[in-house]
Design a protein around this nucleic acid. Structure first.
Length: 271
DNA sequence: GACAACCTGACC
DNA sequence: GGTCAGGTTGTC
């Protein structure tokens, strides 16, 4: 489900809603959702939410007891804050109570996970260690160097979380469209001026999506359970067969790196 | 690189 | 019945 803009929206929501609050009790409904096994309730109850941080698509929540809660939502995970009286939907795996409100972790497909680790040991966690920098943390020159130094198809490269974090299937398609780059182009052979465009379009599409509170194509909702609106601004993702908004040619969909890639055959050429 | 695996549900 | 899905990981 969520890529950088959706995770960022949820993180900002959670800062508003639960930062500074104390966990009063927890329901470990589905223990197997914990990546490293379920923690003792003792290590969660009566701790204060110190902060809510995004690292790539991971959500980190440092607690006052020097442990950090970690979430990855994968495709269909949701983190919402609701009244304890609101009906509990199917596939809710985890509930943290804060008095009369609760943080709920829900995930139909169960690809997502929760984890708990000592805050001073986060640097040793393999799946966090290999997360690269956010696009926002990269200068234009760093971004271009990073891409030209690899010899890979540009779309899968953009989605590689160890190179640049946060970009997934939707925003790689959208950024490549805006830059006029075919998703199969080999990164090292793309002209500098195209990569400058790609840098700008990547930042722009992510920022615009954050302003729209993310893209809801099926499951994604923010921490209040509301859909985003950036699906209304997509230029290519999910628009196979529809006319390109710039040249009216039909948007194509092809499988690239085992993911479906959407692009305009007129504006994004291989040669 | 391609593909299967992890799961459920929507859609054809 | 088969295909597809905002992700990641591990196997050829």
């Amino acid at each position: 489900m969520p890529e950088l803009p959706e995770v960022e929206t949820i993180v900002r929501d959670l800062r508003d809603k639960i930062a500074g609050q104390t966990i009063t009790s927890v329901d470990l409904i589905r223990p197997s959702i914990w990546r490293s096994g379920p923690p003792r309730k003792k290590s969660l109850i009566n701790t204060v939410i110190n902060a809510v941080i995004r690292k790539g698509k991971n959500i980190l929540i440092p607690l006052s007891n020097n442990f950090t809660l970690i979430f990855h939502l994968k495709m269909t995970g949701r983190l919402t804050v609701e009244s304890k009286d609101a009906p509990i939907p199917k596939h809710t795996h985890l509930i943290f109570n804060f008095g009369d409100r609760q943080l709920r972790f829900n995930d139909v497909r169960r690809f997502g996970y929760a984890d708990l680790a000592p805050s001073d040991k986060l640097a040793e966690i393999e799946y966090l260690k290999k997360i690269g920098p956010d696009p926002f943390e990269l200068s234009r020159a760093m971004f271009i160097d990073l891409i030209r130094s690899k010899n890979r198809m540009i779309k899968p490269l953009l989605m590689d979380q160890s190179i640049i974090a946060g970009i997934g299937n939707i925003y790689s398609d959208e950024a490549l469209f805006l830059a006029g780059i075919h998703p199969r182009r080999i990164s090292s052979r793309i002209k500098i001026d195209k990569l400058e465009k790609l840098y700008n379009s990547t930042l722009r599409v992510l920022q615009n999506s954050i302003k729209s509170r993310g893209t809801s194509v099926s499951d994604y909702v923010d921490a209040s359970g509301q859909k985003g609106t950036f699906q209304n601004s997509l230029r290519v993702y999910g628009r196979e067969g529809e006319p390109c908004k710039k040249c009216r040619r039909k948007i194509k969909r092809e499988t690239i790196g085992s993911r479906s890639a959407h692009f305009c055959p007129g504006r994004q050429r291989l040669n």
